[in-house]
Design a protein around this nucleic acid. Structure first.
Lengths: 188, 188
DNA sequence: TCCTTAATGCAAATATATTTGCATTAAGGT
DNA sequence: ACCTTAATGCAAATATATTTGCATTAAGGA
């Protein structure tokens, strides 16, 4: 049988060094300042290879950002929904508040927006988070706890954290706490 | 006395035709598909002029998007905070749900993100909205109504609408209504 | 080990974006 | 009406980005 593709060995090595280069550059420069040539140099790879594999800087950066954002974060399981959501929101807030976290999230949005064809890709990126929300809510329901809807959690927790990151507003644990309290009906 | 600048006449005409061109292109193509040459052609202006005045497509598009987003929207004054907020959130939702509204908001984010130096500009763009929120809340306070904080309104109304727009999730009046109800402590 | 060929590197060719020099137009003041 | 010069247009020059052709390397299977 004849191999159609060769994802192992050198190919994998190239990819990982390219991803590392993008990651490094993204933490020091701003998204808009990256170009294929620079990434190729940093990765020690020919720029032509990058063009052949990804075609476009935005595509490459998007792929790197997605891989990073898709990484599963620990899903809290404390026994109470309030505590689960607080831990979860805090960890996201902390992550987004860090220079790298902020850079990757911004890079993701900046790389995904210019292409209308990526609407689906944008939603896909939310999937892992939504799955986590569902897991937490399901457990709460199993315990008989009253719980908000998935949409509410997206709107009241994720959305503010994301928006704050995009607009450069402070995003820390106290913000996360306030959002959770708001969501769970702490009243006025 | 000698004129340092000449903002009137031809200059103003050029600017307005360029802005119109960007607006038109932004509603038919996607942000990433615009370039100086195309804009110049559509506007009937030399591309060199655009380079001299704006230097970069992103800068130009950002300026157009900001001008549009900064346009004051009618500020509701119905006599009750709940109704004010509902009207206000609905009008924003409707605006963001329209192809042009969505395109301009996305263009603004996409153009502002790649430059780290524009963090302040991003926040500035929120100012008019925040001023409106303050106006509504102040009136509510004057009437003796209980009211949330400005931050809460930003987090619970603006953030969800913006995030939904960025991720391609539905954004309509019923969503706006749900958010307002949530914000005003409708409970679980 | 050997063979096929996917993946890469390199240099040159091409395309595209941006700048520059200079002539022309027309604000805006006298 | 006239003068100065900011703003523009146009063509050429330059820079940068992207593609292409071909040789080389090394997966991955036999």
């Amino acid at each position: 049988m004849i191999a159609k593709q060769r994802p192992g060995g050198r190919t994998a090595r190239t990819k990982s060094s390219v991803f590392e280069a993008v990651t490094a550059l993204l933490t020091e420069r701003c998204y808009g300042a990256l170009n294929m040539t620079e990434i190729a140099e940093r990765a020690g790879v020919a720029a032509t290879s990058l063009y052949r594999r990804w075609g476009d800087v935005r595509v490459l950066i998007l792929e790197v950002a997605v891989e990073r954002l898709m990484q599963e974060r620990p899903l809290p399981d404390t026994g109470s929904l309030a505590q689960d959501l607080q831990d979860w929101a805090r960890s996201i807030a902390v992550s987004l508040a860090s220079p790298e976290g902020s850079a990757f999230f911004q890079a993701f949005i900046a790389a995904a927006l210019p292409t209308g064809s990526d609407v689906a890709a944008r939603l896909d990126a939310l999937k892992p988070r939504i799955a986590q929300i569902e897991a937490m809510l399901d457990r709460a329901a199993a315990r008989g706890e009253a719980a908000p809807s998935v949409d509410d959690v997206v709107d009241m927790l994720l959305a503010p954290l994301y928006t704050r990151t995009l607009f450069g507003m402070p995003t820390d644990e106290s913000v996360a706490d306030r959002l959770v309290e708001r969501l769970l009906g702490g009243g006025r």
